[in-house]
């Protein structure tokens, strides 16, 4: 078998089989990225790379390719450029992939994207010319063959491409078979939706093991009771377990000192995620952890402990 080509730090560590921690950055509706850059600087010592979101929930933000480039340039933190197929057709996306390479982006996460109807520009035309699997296929064609539709690219892009998976999906088998398609398309890594249910996660990860794609488990450490409650109420398909919500609520009501409150939340996250992740690691089901808790960079030193444990 030909040696796997490596185009990024993420690709390099994946090839070595190291357990990886990645973070997430969510640029907002702004042309000034200083807040995101600050967060990137805070998480940079702890993570291998960070996802840069592409107008999540269909709410328009600064372009994720531009943001990825600027974050990399300003902080040195490697980015995983999230690209949805929602807004641009195949022709446009192929051009963006070349543009992204020229801007130094070496990782891309292929996503369908939330429908514009959900966001703040519902009147816009939903594109979805490609889907998350055919985008993976397009990237791999451009990178591996140096061609698009059989036409030579003078200087082809080089980048790694990943895809998403949802262990909470019901029916689960439909999701598992879909991951099979993404694997066939050439996905080099999978990042999962946030999970809290260990048994279901094990069942899902075992079911997709046959596709032999390294999996990053999506986790969402909760910074406060408000965040936990909001996540439980507003993120469709993911329920925060009741006992966790109760624990987080008790911190809010019982601990009056703000500094102490923060410490307790951090400790509770650590205590929940440590056994959760260690169980999955022990079973050999994970290649890494993808932490989606944006604006909660202070948790990373503790997360690194969890990941290394």
């Amino acid at each position: 078998m030909a040696e796997k080509k490596v185009y990024s730090k993420l690709g390099e560590l994946l090839a070595k089989g190291e357990f990886i921690l990645t973070g997430e950055l969510e640029p907002e509706k702004t042309c000034d990225l200083s807040h995101t850059i600050q967060e990137a600087k805070e998480m940079a010592p702890y993570v291998v790379a960070a996802n840069v979101t592409d107008s999540p929930l269909g709410i328009v933000t600064i372009n994720s390719m531009a943001a990825s480039h600027i974050i990399q340039k300003e902080t040195g933190l490697e980015c995983i450029w999230q690209l949805t197929v929602r807004d641009v057709n195949k022709l446009g996306i192929a051009g963006m992939i070349m543009g992204a390479h020229a801007l130094g982006i070496r990782n891309i996460l292929s996503l369908t994207g939330d429908h514009p109807n959900l966001g703040d520009m519902p009147e816009t035309k939903p594109v979805f010319d490609l889907d998350s699997a055919t985008l993976v296929k397009l990237v791999r064609e451009m990178v591996d063959t140096g061609k698009i539709n059989g036409h030579e690219i003078e200087h082809p892009p080089t980048m790694h491409v990943g895809a998403a998976a949802n262990p909470n999906a019901n029916p689960m088998e439909a999701e598992v078979l879909k991951i099979g398609r993404k694997a066939e398309a050439g996905a080099e890594f999978i990042q999962t939706q946030v999970v809290y249910d260990l048994d279901m996660t094990i069942e899902f990860l075992r079911a997709i093991q046959k596709y032999k794609v390294p999996v990053f488990l999506g986790i969402f450490p909760m910074k406060s009771y408000g965040i936990a409650k909001g996540f439980d109420m507003f993120v469709p398909g993911v329920d925060v377990p009741k006992d966790i919500l109760a624990k987080w609520k008790s911190v809010k009501t019982d601990v009056s000192d703000k500094k102490e409150q923060k410490d307790v939340y951090d400790r509770l996250n650590y205590e929940f995620f440590k056994p959760f992740i260690s169980e999955l690691k022990k079973k050999g089901l994970l290649a890494g952890i993808h932490c989606m808790a944006v604006h909660y960079t202070r948790i990373f030193p503790k997360l690194v402990e969890v990941v290394k444990a």
């Binding site: 929602r86 369908t112 429908h115 889907d131 998350s132 055919t134 998403a164 398909g237």
Partner: peptide
């Protein structure tokens, strides 16, 4: 709703 060729998507 997205006329996808390879669904379901994460919005299910």
């Amino acid at each position: 709703a997205k006329a996808l060729m390879n669904g379901p998507c994460g919005g299910m």
